[in-house]
Structure formats: structure tokens, C-alpha cells
Design a binder for these strands. Structure first.
Lengths: 248, 248
DNA sequence: GAGCATGGTGTATATTGTACACCAAGAAAA
DNA sequence: TTTTCTTGGTGTACAATATACACCATGCTC
């Protein structure tokens, strides 16, 4: 049984990424905050999904709970990317406003633990009945006003994602169970902001025995249909070489 | 001006690694804890250097403060490796004892933020006048009793170190300013628990233009003296290729 | 059946990884 | 002063991987 007594000075924020076969997107939430002193309601348009942790809850559970509440899904890829104390979070003069806000006792977070979530867009769209949650292209974040330290957290999450994607097969979490090689390539290009030679990319993938071709092909496309592939984590775990070139 | 009012439910623990040219070591601290209720003094022999954060302090500053207090040094390599809520930290039945201890209100930490510190052994030995702080070989930790969740944190830190060392040139933080190639090789072997072919290792290092040979040689050794080398972070930053093979 | 859009393939060259063994220099001991 | 000991330092052949690059195939639409 979980007590819903919150820990007032610790919160978890989730940076949720999705991929629509064209570009990378983030899930942002419209939030209403009630100032407990004045009773005024503040509406914050673009915030990360986040909440305080409960007293008898660990951090991963808090993040899982938040994502379940948001998407209805509870087997989402979720990984901590950092903990941030209040002074860390002042990254631009505008954010200073939110620091003041916190210091005035409006909000009393001291530490925020950031979680990176990767979700399969095709699975979640149906569940999103709530109008207050929507996708925004990652490229749009630069010009977006975000409350608190959320812009800072977003960029930290993006950096972590770009780092991890080079070293672990987590990008597949952003794709449906079956995907084509062009989709996979577009995903990596969107993630890393580069472009790859098609033949060389496919040669690399061919060496990854955990990316397995299926018998199925695309249907209803106005061009030659592509073959579907599947990512097998089991095969990955068995065949990984563990060698990630820096010194070895 | 820093207030010394501590935040009771957030602490920072530092896992400090050192290298003695033979093996990897960790710095452990003997701690006395006073149970505020009974007044009994508990002596904990092997704990990580850690403390609560102060109210107006960010996490990095807390870690820096703790390390400065411990070693006298304040330009030490320091990097967060994770935040852990209380349920995360129960890794073995023995640790359960400490969870109870926390739950009884003896200690009321809810979140611990772990920091990985790498220090140049040769610089710090002199400063360590305090008898309550000493080095232990990393290989000895398995058989060691450690209080709280510190054994768990230690292994998390070691994993983080082994991961990072493959991808970033942080191992040099464990060596003196001038070092020989054999020392560098022994360090990597100690860090990763493997061994390398001398010629191939040196071929790799030769391609790292940020590892720069000096004119100086070893003196007073009973064999052919080795050449000293130097790690230049500037050169590293300028010449890094940023390519860490997973997909690219 | 022509046009269009995407799917899918191969080869030559450069770079990097890997396996492997011997001489060199200096200090210490005989 | 010679020998021995210990560590320092080097090169080559072969395999694997990375990179650059251009064309035909398939299935739909008009």
C-alpha cells in the first residue's frame, strides 16, 4: 500500500521522447498551479511531466507512476539522467524568475531527479485522450518558453539520449515492434542530427544479428514495399561484444 | 554566505578512487554516528564520504565541499553517477538492517546522490593527516562489511567508472601530471580488469595526440628509465572525433 | 505503359585492429 | 668489468571494419 504523502522537496521530471518517422518530438504538459498563499491559479503551457515523490516510493517507481498517469502505459523505457539541485538549474536569466519563485516558498523543490523516457508513438496516440498533453518537435524547443528549469532539464535529457544512443540499442524503443530499415535510418538521423549513406548504414545493421528481418512487407504504400525488421533484445544480450572503443 | 542548515532528507555520498601504480583503491572513512534518541554512539568503520546537503547549496557544491574537507583538495574530478531513493538501496538482506534504521527515524535520508571522484594519489597522501580516512583496494570491497547502502553505491560508482573510462579520457585524473606509458597501461588494466598487448596499447596511445611525450625521463629506477608523458585536455578537446561506435 | 517514389544492392580503397618476439638501457651483483 | 636482471621500447603481416560512391528493382498512380 502506497502512502500518498508527498516529499515536498524532491521531485521527478520525465522528458518523454517520441518519433513520428520524420522527426523527434517531446511530450509537454499544460499545468495549472495554485499558489497556496494567494489562491491565484497560474497556467503553465509547456512543462515536463513531473511530480513530487511519495514518502515510501523509490525514484524509479515515481517516474513509472508519472508516466502511467500520462500515457496509460507502464512498460516504457525509462532511465535516470541526473539529479539537480536548485542552483544547478539556473541556466538563463529567465530561469532566475523561477528560482525566486521557489525561494519565496511557492514551490519548495530542492532536488529534481530527471528521467528520460522513450516511447513508441504508434502505441500511445490512442491513449492520449487528455487534451492537455501534446507532442512538440524537439527543434521547436529552442524558441519555446518553458517554466521552471524545464528547458535546462530537456537539454540535459537530449544530451543523455544522444550519448546513450551511440552505445546502447535504446533507439528501438522509439519504433514500433516492426519497422523498416529506412525508418531506422531516419530515426538515427533525427536523433543525432546527421545523415548516413544508405548502403553503409544497412551494412552496419546487417552485422547486428539482433535486428532480424521478418517475412512481412509493407502494404499500401505507393512504391516498392519495404521489408519489416524486428529488434530482439535477447539476441542482443547474447551477442554483444561489450567493446566500445576508447582505449580498447 | 552559505547557511549550514542541512536538508535532512537529501545527502551526497562520494566514492573516491585512487591508483597506486599497482591497483585501484577507494577512500573509506570511519564515522561516528550519534543516535539522537538514545544518545548511543555507533562507530561505522567503512563508510563513503558523505553528508547532507545544505539548504542553499547545489549538489555539485555539496560534493566539492565534502571532498575538500576530506582531502584538502578542491580541483578534483567529480561527477554525479546517480540518485537513489530508499527502496532502490536495499540490495542484500544485510542492507535491510539499514533500511529499518532509516525507517525508524534514526536517519531520515530519502534520496542519496552519488558522486564519483578520481584523485591523484601522489598529491593527496601528504594532506591526509586524519587517521580516520584510508585507502582500501577495490578488490577487497566484496568481503567488506559496509554500513547503509554504501556497498551498493560503491558498485554503482565502479560500474559508472568502467563505463566512462572507455569513452572519455578521465583515467588520467588518477595519474600524476607526468606518467609513463607502462603506468598508463597498468591503470587501464586495473580499471577494466583485463590486460593489453604492450605494442598495440602503445600504438593506440600514439594516435592520441593529446598524450604528449616530454623530454623528461624517469630517474633512480633500477632499469632502463621510461619516458614521461603528459595528458593535455586542450589538445583532446580540439582533436576529439566524437565518434563512439554503436551505429556510427 | 510511362512516370514516380522508395527499396535494395556491391566493389575498391583506406583505416584500424590484432597477433606476435626481440633488442636496448641502465642498475646491481658477482 | 662482465654478467644478470628488469623494464623500456619497437615493426610487420594479416584480418576486419570503415568509407566513398551509382544503379537497377518494384509496385503504385496517372
Amino acid at each position: 500500500m502506497i502512502s500518498h504523502k508527498i516529499v515536498p522537496n524532491i521531485s521527478v521530471d520525465c522528458v518523454v521522447f517520441g518519433f513520428d518517422f520524420e522527426k523527434l518530438n517531446v511530450l509537454l504538459v499544460k499545468r495549472e498551479m495554485v499558489d497556496e498563499k494567494s489562491g491565484k491559479v497560474l497556467i503553465l503551457d509547456h512543462t515536463l511531466a513531473g511530480y513530487h515523490i511519495f514518502e515510501d516510493e523509490d525514484l524509479d517507481s515515481a517516474a513509472t507512476r508519472i508516466l502511467k498517469g500520462l500515457t496509460g502505459l507502464d512498460n516504457i523505457f525509462l532511465e535516470q539522467f541526473g539529479a539537480f539541485g536548485q542552483l544547478d538549474r539556473v541556466s538563463s536569466p529567465k530561469d532566475k524568475m523561477w528560482l525566486d519563485y521557489i525561494n519565496q516558498g511557492f514551490a519548495d523543490r530542492v532536488v529534481t531527479v530527471g528521467y528520460l523516457a522513450l516511447i513508441d508513438n504508434t502505441k500511445v496516440t490512442l491513449t492520449l485522450k487528455d487534451r492537455d498533453v501534446s507532442w512538440f518537435p524537439v527543434s521547436m524547443i529552442t524558441d519555446m518558453e518553458m517554466a521552471f528549469d524545464h528547458k535546462f532539464l530537456f537539454y540535459k535529457a537530449l544530451e543523455a539520449l544522444q550519448r546513450k544512443v551511440k552505445v546502447e540499442p535504446i533507439a528501438f524503443e522509439l519504433l514500433p515492434d516492426y519497422f523498416t530499415l529506412s525508418q531506422l535510418q531516419k530515426l538515427y538521423e533525427a536523433l543525432l542530427g546527421t545523415s548516413f549513406d544508405k548502403r553503409n548504414f544497412r551494412k552496419k545493421v546487417a552485422q547486428m544479428h539482433y535486428v532480424i528481418p521478418l517475412k512481412k512487407k509493407q502494404q499500401g504504400v505507393p512504391h516498392k514495399p519495404a521489408q519489416y525488421y524486428l529488434f530482439s533484445r535477447e539476441v542482443y544480450e547474447k551477442t554483444r561484444k561489450g567493446r566500445i572503443s576508447f582505449i580498447i
